[in-house]
Design a protein around this nucleic acid. Structure first.
Lengths: 222, 222
DNA sequence: CAGATAAGCGGACTAAAGTCCACTTGCAAA
DNA sequence: TTTGCAAGTGGACTTTAGTCCGCTTATCTG
C-alpha cells in the first residue's frame, strides 16, 4: 500500500465528465498520489484531524492542484468511498436477485437491505460524515448527495414492488417513506446514536425492522 | 421590533450557569444589542449570509465580546430560538393536557405533536440548520442538541404511555423509535426534502402519520 | 519533429472563524 | 466615597478553507 515505487499503477483511466477527453497522465498520477496520501493520513490521524493543506503537502502537490480535483474534503472522501460503494451496490444487487428467486417477500428484502446499510454506514461513518457535512452547504450539493440518492432509489423501488405485490397498501407515499426510513442512517445522526445514546448496530437494525414491519398494516389516511 | 429607542428594556436577567451570579448591567445590555442586531441582519440578508464579524460590527461590540457570550453562530441562533421553543413547548403541553382530558389515544396525540413540530421546523429551519451544523462538530455539542433532546423526551414518553395503554406492543424499543421518527425532522434533512424533493408540509406530515400508525401493529421481533 | 494550445501545476493571497490578552468598568464591601 | 477585583471589552493575531493566476508540460496536429 505504501510506495516503494509507484510510477505505473495508476488505477482506472478517468474521463472529464463533460467531453470524453482522457485525463492527462501527470494529472492521473497526482490524483492517485492524493488519494493514497489522504487514505494514509486519515487512517493515521483520523479524518477530522487532517486538513486539505496537510494532504497537499504530504502528497507533494500544491493546494491548487488538490482543489482542482477535489473541491473540498467531502469530495475527496466521496472519491475514497467510490469503490466501496460500488462493491456494496453490486453485492446488494446480487443478493436481491437471489432473494427474488427464492421468493422472499419484498418487505423482507427491504429489511435485509437496511441491515446491510446499517453495517455499511457504521464501517464508513467517518468518511460519510465528512461527505454529508459538505453536502449541507447551499452550493452544488448534487454530487455529494449521490449516496443518499441511490439508497433512496433502492428503498423506494422495493416499497413500490411491495405495494404491487400486495404486501403494503398501494396508497402509501413510497417516495416519502423511503426518505424517512433512510434518515436515521444519515451519517451524523447514526454517529450520534452510537456515541451519545450508546445504541448497538443490532438495536438500530431491530428498530428499523420494526418501522418497516409496521408499514404492512399502516393506514395512509391517518 | 425595530429600535426608535431601546435603552431600558433589556429582557430577563441572566445568570452565570455555574454560580448564581447576576450578569453585569453592561454585559446584559450588550447581549441584548447583539441579539437584536443578529435578528435584524438575519432577517435582512439571510442567516447564511451573515457572519460573526458582521454581527459584532453592526452591534458595535468587539469580536471578543460577541464570542464571550456565544461561542459560535449556532449558539447565537439557539438563543434567538429560545423564547419560541419555550412557547412551543408550553403550547404543546397545554394541548396535550386537553387531549388527555378528552381521552384521545396516545398515538393520536403523538401524531398531533409531530404535525406541530413539522410546522415549527418549517418556520425556523434557517436558524435550526445553523444550530444543527454546529452541533455536528466533535466539541461540546450538548448545548446545541437541546432541541432534539426535549423532542425525544416528548416522543418517547408518548410512545411509552401508548404502550402502557395497550395501543402498541410493550416490546417496542421506544427510545430508538422516538429517535427514528424525529430524524426526518432534523433541520437539514427537512430543508432538503422541501427544496430538492419539493415535498409540501402536508405530505411530510402525512408520511409521518403513516409511520406512526404502523406502530400499532408493528412486530418488535421482525 | 515542431509548434500551438489547453490542461495542469503550485504557492502567494484573501476571507472567515475563533483565540488571546492588555486594558477598562461595574459592583460591593469597608 | 473609596477601593479591590472579578467581569467585561475590543481588536490584533492565528489558523484554516478556499481562490487566483502566471508558469509549465503533455498531447495533438501538420
Amino acid at each position: 500500500m505504501t510506495g516503494d515505487d509507484e510510477p505505473i499503477m495508476l488505477g482506472e483511466i478517468h474521463m472529464n465528465e463533460d467531453d470524453g477527453r482522457v485525463e492527462r497522465r501527470d494529472a492521473a498520477a497526482n490524483r492517485y498520489k492524493i488519494l493514497q496520501t489522504a487514505e494514509r493520513l486519515f487512517a493515521a490521524h483520523g479524518v477530522g484531524n487532517v486538513n486539505m493543506a496537510d494532504i497537499a503537502q504530504a502528497a507533494g502537490v500544491g493546494k491548487g492542484t488538490l482543489y482542482r480535483r477535489f473541491a473540498n474534503k467531502g469530495e475527496l472522501c466521496l472519491a475514497l468511498l467510490d469503490t466501496q460503494m460500488a462493491d456494496f451496490q453490486n453485492g446488494m444487487l446480487a443478493r436481491m436477485q437471489q432473494m427474488n428467486i427464492a421468493g422472499l417477500p419484498k418487505l423482507e428484502q427491504l429489511q435485509q437491505f437496511m441491515d446491510a446499510l446499517v453495517y455499511f454506514t457504521d464501517t464508513h461513518s467517518p468518511l460519510l460524515c465528512e461527505v454529508q457535512r459538505e453536502g449541507l452547504l447551499p452550493l452544488d450539493n448534487t454530487r455529494l448527495q449521490l449516496p443518499h440518492f441511490w439508497q433512496h432509489m433502492t428503498v423506494s423501488a422495493l416499497l413500490r414492488t411491495a405495494a404491487a405485490a400486495g404486501e403494503i397498501s398501494p396508497e402509501l407515499d413510497t417516495d416519502y417513506l423511503a426518505d424517512a426510513l433512510l434518515s436515521p442512517l444519515k451519517a451524523d445522526f447514526f454517529q450520534f446514536q452510537k456515541t451519545n445514546r450508546g445504541f448497538t448496530l443490532e438495536r438500530i437494525s431491530a428498530g428499523l425492522r420494526t418501522l418497516i414491519s409496521g408499514l404492512r398494516n399502516a393506514d395512509p389516511e391517518s
